[in-house]
Simulated scan of single mutants.
Amino acid sequence: MKKTIKRQYRIARYVFYRETLLEPIDHLWTFIGTFIAIASIGGLQQVGFTQQDSVFLIGSFGASCVLLFGAANSPLAQPRNLVGGHLLASIIGVAIHKLIPDQLWLSSALAVSLSIVFMQITKTMHPPAGATALIANIGSEKITSLGFSYTLTPVMTGVAILLLTALLVNNISSKRSYPVRSFSWNRLSGKGRGRFSPVHDKNAANRSTDQRIE
């Protein structure tokens, strides 16, 4: 038991370090990636689709940007999670809204909770997708009237833009990689390679820190 607690502590400490230690240049890439992604989605809504009364920019995209550009090495930010999470949540959110249109508290609760369970089952956990399911039920009339079209536009259209931007911006710098590359967790967990792991950082300071936390 004591060994297990120590091992989990080392893993948590390591992940916390890798998730929070950023060089100044990382802040620049985070800003650039987020700005391009949100501006692109917003631009489509403002310039190309206003006359069709379409909605492209939803709140959950902002939360996705936090993961994609602020914590790109997180397993929750990987393409499978981004695409699968939003896809499942949007379908479930719309389906629940159609089944229970007049009970906002019930439809909202069911949409979010079922979305999380299905993301767990399919291993596509992406926290911002919970908001995608919720928006399908509490959004404006423009959104709720879309029905299952909500999945295609704005959700999957916006997700495609987010993913393409992340693939471009997060691979410009040699210190970033998206999707993440695997590295060995032997020293941390004693169980071989982790299925999900932070990107291998070429920074010597990170390597020395990896040694110190053992």
Rank of each mutant, 00 (worst) to 15 (best):
K2P: 06
K3M: 15
T4Y: 14
I5R: 14
K6H: 10
K6M: 15
K6C: 08
R7E: 15
R7K: 13
Q8E: 08
Q8D: 14
Y9P: 03
I11Y: 15
R13W: 10
Y17H: 12
Y17K: 14
E19G: 13
L22R: 12
P24H: 13
H27K: 08
W29P: 02
F31S: 03
S40I: 05
S40N: 03
S40E: 02
G42H: 04
G43F: 13
Q45N: 00
Q45R: 01
V47D: 04
G48N: 00
T50K: 09
D53C: 01
F61A: 00
F69L: 08
G70A: 05
A72P: 08
S74T: 13
L76I: 04
L76Y: 14
L76M: 03
A77F: 09
Q78E: 10
Q78K: 06
N81L: 02
L82D: 05
G85L: 06
G85M: 08
L87Y: 02
L87K: 01
L87T: 01
L88F: 10
A89C: 11
I91Q: 00
I92G: 02
G93K: 07
V94K: 06
A95V: 04
H97Q: 07
L99P: 12
P101S: 14
Q103D: 03
L104R: 05
W105V: 11
W105F: 10
W105K: 08
S107K: 05
S107N: 15
S108G: 12
L110P: 13
L110I: 11
S113D: 06
I116L: 11
V117D: 00
F118W: 08
F118S: 09
Q120N: 13
T122R: 02
T122C: 12
T122M: 09
H126E: 01
P127I: 12
P127K: 07
A129W: 13
G130F: 10
A131C: 12
A133I: 03
L134G: 09
N137S: 05
N137Y: 02
N137H: 04
I138V: 13
I138M: 08
G139A: 04
S140T: 12
K142V: 01
S149M: 12
S149T: 12
Y150N: 01
L152G: 10
P154Q: 00
P154S: 07
V155S: 01
M156E: 04
T157K: 03
G158H: 03
G158W: 04
V159E: 03
A160Y: 01
L164D: 00
L164F: 07
T165A: 11
L168C: 11
L168G: 11
S174D: 10
K175E: 12
R176P: 04
P179V: 09
V180S: 15
S184L: 01
W185M: 06
N186R: 05
R187P: 00
S189R: 01
G190V: 06
K191H: 06
K191N: 11
K191M: 10
G192E: 09
G192H: 07
R193Y: 06
F196C: 07
F196E: 10
P198R: 14
D201I: 07
A204S: 15
A204E: 15
A205P: 07
A205N: 07
A205W: 11
R207M: 11
S208G: 08
S208F: 10
S208C: 11
Q211P: 00
I213F: 14
I213V: 13
E214I: 15
